[in-house]
């Protein structure tokens, strides 16, 4: 039996479900860690990104934070763990550091992409700055924010495999344990689940990204793309009428 088939078989073995080391339990942990990390990162990054996008001040923060992504997450996590001990805290902090730049960039880019003239007009008719943010910039910026959350989520799900290294659980358990015991089917099974989770996240956010495009903006895109179609339909209407 080849290693891939063995991995699949491992995945479907009922003995590997239930209990602290069950695949289901580890998936639950993995998702929980990822969701906690994304939530914390979003709470930090979205307001900051919005503030920078709205005021146009502090763009350098977006650039610098992009560089932070280059930090080796494993090293950072271990460094934090040496200070705060093993458990959930160190990986969560390290992954938040990883996730913030993408979300920050998405939040900022969403605001930055709004036509200046639209914002100027909103201000000129008497919207307060707060109303400009909530009624104009946030709705128009949502698609790009979702894009930022999408890449952050992908990174976090992939990297959360490291959490088990400091005893925080998740799907990394199967990778580390499999490596120690040379149980390659187990490692492979763990990897497959991580990949599936990542794909699921991509799908989810791809759908969300589409859903949050304001109807009027989508109408604009359609109008741009379908000039030809309209010309044709007018012609056929003329022909039949």
């Amino acid at each position: 039996m080849n290693i891939f088939a063995e991995g699949i078989a491992w995945l479907f073995d009922p003995a590997h479900y239930g209990g602290v080391d069950g695949i289901d339990t580890r998936i639950g942990e993995h998702i929980m860690i990822s969701v906690i990390v994304l939530a914390i990162a979003a709470v930090i990054a979205i307001p900051v990104g919005y503030l920078i996008g709205h005021t146009g001040r502090g763009r350098v923060i977006v650039v610098v934070s992009g560089g932070v992504r280059a930090l080796p997450t494993l090293g950072l996590m271990i460094l934090i763990a040496l200070n705060v001990g093993v458990g959930l805290e160190a990986p969560v902090i390290a992954f938040v550091v990883l996730a913030v730049p993408s979300i920050l960039a998405g939040a900022y880019a969403g605001f930055d992409a709004v036509d200046r003239r639209t914002i100027d007009a909103a201000r000129a008719v008497g919207m307060t700055e707060w109303q400009i943010v909530t009624k104009v910039e946030i709705p128009l910026g949502l698609p790009l924010l979702m894009g930022g959350l999408r890449s952050a989520s992908l990174q976090v799900i992939a990297t959360a495999t490291l959490a088990d290294y400091v005893g925080a659980g998740g799907l990394g358990h199967f990778l580390f344990l499999g490596l120690q015991t040379r149980d390659y089917p187990q490692m492979l099974a763990g990897s497959i689940v991580v990949v599936l989770l990542a794909l699921f996240s991509e799908l989810l956010f791809a759908i969300l990204e589409r859903l949050v495009v304001p109807a009027g903006v989508r109408a604009g895109e359609r109008a741009d793309n379908q000039e030809d179609v309209r010309a044709k339909s007018v012609r056929s209407r003329t022909a039949t009428g």
Binding site: A121, A122, A124, G126, V136, G216
Partner: peptide
């Protein structure tokens, strides 16, 4: 803000909110 709500303003590019 108060003044602007009492003065009508029409601009070249219409300045309409695209999502409304």
């Amino acid at each position: 803000v108060h003044l602007r709500r009492d003065v009508g303003y029409v601009m070249q590019n219409s300045g309409l909110l695209p999502h409304r």
